[in-house]
């Protein structure tokens, strides 16, 4: 009888260890950004506000991650002495090749999200959703769930899908929680396309 209990307990322990320790590690694919970019350095030298680089177009659409021509404005030749910058110029600026940035906060295709409505009408600060990205000295690795295709930033840090009360992610639940608090509830097509 004891043997049976041990077998049950060890099976359970193994599964618990696998589910809590190993699963979160193997769930996400980790990829490095193409260029080791420092928001901190650029915030000090190039532009103080997020919108200086992550700008809005005239029609209100959000331009997102700046394209190479914005970078080339300053980096046609090396401005500093770092190997990263030299590498960036050789690999991307000189051959005029767009770096394939991995967007942490890219929503799935069926989501319509208007930055300008949140920033200009809702007075939401960039940091509220994106964290203090602007103050970091290096880009984090990009983590993606290969099954759902969601970035870990969209999902949020915890692995479990239930009982989430935090607002760390940018899932539909997170959007809805915030909208409910403000009494701004729309129909499905308000945010989906």
């Amino acid at each position: 009888m004891i043997g049976g209990k041990i077998a049950f307990a060890s099976g359970m322990l193994l599964a618990l260890a696998g589910g809590w320790l190993a699963f979160p590690r193997i769930l996400y694919q980790t990829r490095q950004q193409p260029v080791n970019f420092s928001h901190k350095v650029h915030a000090e030298k190039a532009g103080a506000k997020c919108e200086d680089c992550h700008s809005f177009r005239d029609d209100g659409t959000y331009a997102g991650i700046p394209t190479l021509d914005k970078c080339s404005g300053c980096h046609t030749a090396a401005m500093g002495t770092t190997a990263e910058e030299k590498n960036f110029i050789d690999q991307y600026v000189t051959p005029n090749r767009e770096p394939q940035w991995l967007s942490y906060a890219q929503q799935p295709e069926n989501v319509y999200f208007s930055h300008i409505a949140h920033v200009k009408l809702g007075h939401v600060k960039c940091e509220q959703c994106h964290g203090n990205e602007g103050g970091t000295g290096a880009l984090r690795p990009y983590q993606q769930d290969p099954i759902s295709g969601y970035s870990r930033d969209i999902w949020g840090r915890p692995v479990a899908p239930v009982g989430l009360r935090n607002e760390g992610g940018m899932k539909m639940d997170d959007c809805v929680n915030c909208h409910r608090r403000q009494g701004l509830e729309y129909s499905c097509l308000g945010c989906h396309k």
Partner: peptide, 21 residues
């Protein structure tokens, strides 16, 4: 048909850019 909801979004976005709802 959803009355071209993408266009509704675009119109809203344009209004938001002008600071209007």
């Amino acid at each position: 048909c959803n009355f071209c909801h993408g266009r509704w979004h675009a119109a809203q976005q344009k209004a938001a850019a002008a600071g209007q709802r």
